[in-house]
Design a protein around this nucleic acid. Sequence first.
RNA 1: GUGCCCGUAGCUCAGCAGGAUAGAGCAACUGCCUUCUAAGCAGUAGGUUGGGGGUUCGAGUCCCUCCGGGCACGCCA
Length: 563
Amino acid sequence: MNYVELARGQAAQIIADAYRKACENGLLPQCDLPAPIIEIPKDLSNGDYASTFAMRNSKALGKGAPAVAQAICGCAELEGSFFSEVSAASNGFINLRLSHLWFEKALLAIHEEGENYGRSTQENPLNIMVEFVSANPTGPMHMGNARGGVLGDALAEVLSRVGHRVTREFYVNDAGNQIDKFARSIEARYFQLIDGEDSLVFPEDGYQGEDIKVLAALYRDMHGDALKNEPAEKRLEALGEFGISQNLPKMKLELERYGIVYDNWFYESSLYSSGAVERAMDALVQSGHTYESEGALWLKTTDFGCEKDDVLRRANGFYTYFAADIAYHSEKLGARGFDIAIDVWGADHHGHVARLKAALDALGLDGARRLEIVLMQLVRLTRNGEVVRMSKRTGKAIALNDLLDEISVDAARYFFSSRAADTHLEFDLDLAVRQNSENPVYYVQYAHARCNSILKNLSADGIETNPQNAGLNLLVDPAEADLIRELAQLPEEIRLAADSRDPSRLTKYATQVAAALHRFYTECRIKEAEEELRTARIYLINCVATVVKNTLSAFGVTAPDHM
RNA sequence: GUGCCCGUAGCUCAGCAGGAUAGAGCAACUGCCUUCUAAGCAGUAGGUUGGGGGUUCGAGUCCCUCCGGGCACGCCA
């Protein structure tokens, strides 16, 4: 149950009713006004909720905002609501104060819902696919993939928590030029192993990493030198397939270590073998938005507001990556039955967004609305203040696995979750490794450990620590009220994270809950409190533990019982 | 050159749909452990929200412009 939403709704209703009553009493003129906006002020000294109704409508009502606010307050009926007090501020704000009933109800809901607290349902649940990471299987994953991984995973999680049906997918780019490049790189290393360093010139645009040498050596160990005398085409195919067959399981393991498990791994190559690419291209030709020029097949993306048209099939007869991507996404939104497809992409692909949407629009799939791209700014990796370029081609990428050897999965996931996708993220390796207790993740986890520790301690003294619904009306200390207000916020935070496609706000929320707990812990004793109050505080502590755990689990971070 | 993203405290960043006195963490300084975990709490100091215009009762938030940084503009993926 979302008590923030409930209170907000009640407040809006109270003010709307009060306005109607003020009109009947001749205090205010009858106008057609928009629904009152209710906000939670930063500074709670004036009230728990506030409305800007008077300021917003003072012009329409022909009266000053303070006068409007006073008229509203005079007519407001609080009976049966969660509010105990309504007042007009001199600048026109209408302030409402929550009654203790609200605090008690909010706590009861947390305990009742337990690990489901924070979840909600949709009237019309959507079938949503979140596709993320989709790193090229040509080498180990880097920091950008690490960021995209938690972002996509957490996004999928919050979407499912608000009641949608969510599928996590990894798109395996096992076709196209970069695979050819990959195969030629392994080939060069393979020949170097057999015939010495100068046997075959290393491709200029090849993959330089050590992992390529390892793959070549592994292939030779397993299959010998026979491939050397095969035709080049057959050799490259064998080496490319071998490389992918080695890399892909490693990537799966790496992602699992990182806490990410996909529902489905979708292979680009399957789009060709299933005929999906052909079908999509035929459909595009049927749509009338294509033409042939200089031997190539073009899509008129300019029909949909793009700056220039794009090639679908090259003059050499091969389809472009764009063509495969159109086929892939038309399958998602068509045959595979997803209402919405969300892709998490690196910002370096942003130029691709408009034309993919355009292509889907041409196919009648409403790409403008049903395809959502979350663009993630690239991670700038620095070491000793120096920028480290992250590319698989140069072999200088820092692997996700290497990072996880240095810091915990929890620390890595929290760090990458803590900033919105569109912020430029700087990741200092030395700092990350050193960060330990300075990392906010420990601050939050400590809050959970503290709750548990208190309960364990009390339990050892023979005190009942299972939540007992009694004395909740005694929780009136400001530190207790602040804490409960924070706890009540979780369902709202998850809803906002899902709606705005931005789970990073939950790390900020987690920090706020932890801060409120730590303040409460300092201000309010539990062990020495009088029995009824102690019982109520034990109830509260149990709720805090639930909320911290449910928040951290949204981005895959654990809530330890002790630290 | 064109398009997208960013610019808030010394550093890393919040600021929800325009609202009351712009907030956290780190770093600095001052206090708080014989009492439930000090991985904590309280306090001090730190700001022309990149500059300049505009919109209005009100702008960090919206619009324009300039400055600075990142990314992209392939018959690569």
